[in-house]
Nucleic acid binder design. Structure first.
Lengths: 199, 199, 199, 199
DNA sequence: ATATAAACGAGACGGTACGTCGGGTCTTTTT
DNA sequence: AAAAAGACCCGACGTACCGTCTCGTTTATAT
């Protein structure tokens, strides 16, 4: 995925066109037929590549789709800093849901989650690499809020991240990302709590 | 079809032992090898049944696993009524996580979710049948709380259910159901909100 | 290969059309492209069969080709009885060479021999089944000659069979089956010996 | 295979160590795993050479194995002259079978024959180069016998060579080279004929 | 000395085929 | 009529080699 700067030895270089063609074919198939249309064979066929070439660079289907996610998810990486947790979270989730809906990232992420249910090793990768990286930015966002004194004492930031991601995953996995107005209601409930306060 | 309503023919009835053997084999395989070990072939092999027999009664693997879930999830169906939303939710989630951890239900549910990512029809079943049924009881629980005046005005109950299920799904799908102490921290955050209140 | 008279159990019968199509496709490919064009894939492709179906009935390529040989080699099975070893041998070899040249049997047999050089198990099958069966008839021919008192005392019949088959194999494997006049010169040398006798 | 004496242009010379390492690796693999273990890849791997280097010097696997045969078959080249065809043939065949059994030559020759069944070009090489060279010495042996008046008039020397080689090939290809006592029985049958003579 | 050219390792690559697994559907026999 | 047993086509799996190509290094002439 990332190329090391120093070549360890001689030999032909990886063909970037093939690399690109494989990624693009995966995206096209995901768009046309969804995850269940993606097989190493179908990707190879469409990319004009050979199966061994794909297996040389990606250990399995999940790794291929994960790289597709990485390559298409630039938009989700920018960290908002709008002055309040409420605004930051709102920006973040609108942005994330939008990317999931409008690019192939949503389909790709669903695939990665599904695949991780089949194989413990992929689940470990999902948790320890994929999600670990993706929790960083929201975590800093919570940290900023904490620094501003916005967070209550009983808040456990990691648990709060689970809560936020859980809601998003649930909507992604049940194909309910279009009701964007729910985002702000969700944030209200989250920030204010669901219990009535009788002054 | 063309014959009268009274059974006149000598045909064999559905063999309940076969039915049971298929469910039990599915459970055993789920326990031993997890979801990826479950295939119609492997179930048929272990149950001593034939593939067509399985296909006659279950349209696909997900339906088979869903029935396994139903048959093993009695424990999760009891509705608590402990007098407060906090206590009811705590009981509910401890109970649910326990069942997911200690019976095959957790594995089965993960499978159903994963399978639903492959096929839109199964996703529809998951949402409209499986989840619809499972949201009923928690919904009544929220209703009770509302009747007691416990819920804030800005609360959207369906969204709140999504939030609760989202958190549970996230923990299930990332195999983090053992940290049961998180349940009550989660409920605290949920009920009180995460925003600091400066009296 | 041979159908047993009594069915052992229930279930669909083997589809004779598929069986036939596979054999015929093998023959066609052998004719068009020779042994190196025959692969399980190419046979399956042309026969409109699936690879698993072929593997269900034949353990490997050699077994498939061996059955082709069996099914096409009726002509070689008739045992001559013309009254003298010289005439019987002449008939036998002309017949054999003709079948090898004019049907697909020659190509098939070459393939079986080549394949047996790759795998000890196939070599054992070639010796213990394939050749064992094919040596029977010539052996009886020698027996007849012996009964007529035609054979010298120092003759070892099995060794003599090796000698005859060796000559034929050599010509087959080096594609020299057209010089049929050599057959009778060979038989003369065999019967009379190559040593000059000075009266 | 042979290096021309005059260099045509500049450039590094062929590395004799690499050449040797390739041959030796081929021999080792032939010994350990037989012909089916020999692939250009496996030879390159073991020799620490690259595939293009092998392809630069040998057009195909058969040529490589044929060179192995040449390099290991010195022993079979000496021509006996013991005064009688019977003794000469006996020496020749004992020597040949011994070399085939005790060195890698037998395995190598089987491989060359098998390979020639796959490709007409290799078959032509086998006949026109490989075998042509190997028939020379036995042919002179027969010539000597003829000069001594040992051969009957009806003998066709080339056919007689086919007969002798055929017997040896048959035994080689069916792994029956250990019964060396058969050699002299074979020669007796060959010289005296198999027909009984009633004085 | 310095181009020039070949040999060579390393290895990427498109292919073809391997032998296997599982998905669904169909036919045949048994109960 | 239902069940059981298999045969069957289909598609995909992950791997092994094939033979060709590019790349960068080394080594031996030829200027």
């Amino acid at each position: 995925m990332s190329s090391s700067s120093a070549r360890s030895s001689t030999g032909a270089l990886r063909n970037p066109q093939t690399h690109q063609a494989i990624l693009e074919s995966t995206i096209e198939i995901l768009k046309e037929s969804g995850y269940c249309g993606v097989s190493i064979e179908s990707v190879a066929r469409r990319a004009g590549a050979s199966k061994p070439t794909i297996y040389r660079w990606w250990p399995n289907k999940a790794a291929l789709i994960a790289e597709v996610y990485e390559s298409e998810s630039d938009r989700v990486r920018q960290m908002p800093d709008l002055g309040s947790l409420q605004e930051d979270l709102s920006f973040l989730l609108h942005n994330l849901w939008g990317a999931w809906r409008e690019t192939i990232c949503g389909e790709a992420f669903r695939s990665v989650i599904a695949e991780a249910q089949l194989d413990p090793i992929m689940l470990a990768q999902l948790k320890d690499e994929f999600m670990a990286r993706r929790r960083d930015m929201p975590r800093r966002l919570l940290q900023n809020a904490a620094n501003r004194g916005e967070l209550a004492e009983h808040v456990n930031p990691e648990l709060l991240l689970d809560l936020i991601f859980g809601f998003c995953w649930y909507r992604l996995l049940t194909e309910q990302l279009t009701a964007v107005q729910d985002i702000d209601v969700f944030i209200d409930m989250l920030l204010l709590g669901v219990t009535a306060r009788h002054a």
